[in-house]
Amino acid sequence: MKGKAWKFGNNIDTDLIIPARYLNTSDPDELAKYAMLDADPEWVDKMKKGDFIVAGENFGCGSSREHAPIALKAAGVSAVIAKSFARIFYRNAINIGLPIMESPEAAEEIKEGDEVEVDITSGTIKDLTTGQTYKAQPFPKFMQKIIDQGGLINYLKATLKTA
């Protein structure tokens, strides 16, 4: 996965990612139109499919709305790289199959506009603009299984089949 980095600060809450006033649908493409709206109203028009969000600490804090990772995924975000994630967002992102990577160093050093390449399986983040390589925190084994299936829905379907 290759794309451009868009930088955001600390404590990007789910109201910034998708305001509650747009939760009047569960259609991912409709939700995608409002992704990051209250953080940067022009961002959806500026970003391209495949780009990355690079943020500070506690990304996705606040509401439990799953619409937040759904909107980012549908907008075409390849992955969110952050110093840390809020608990519910972290779990929701894994459940719906939005790749997230925790790397304080990468989140600190990657600059807005840098070309970034990511290998989710190995957890490698490459800043092609600076040539720096970073390693993301590995997921617990149990979560990796859900990620490998592309989310909780597929994971449960697969588990139910083998059970």
Partner: peptide, 13 residues
């Protein structure tokens, strides 16, 4: 504790 919609679905099932 708060969880997302897909976790709620898994819990309901």
């Amino acid at each position: 504790t708060g969880i997302g919609s897909t976790d709620l679905a898994a819990g309901m099932i």
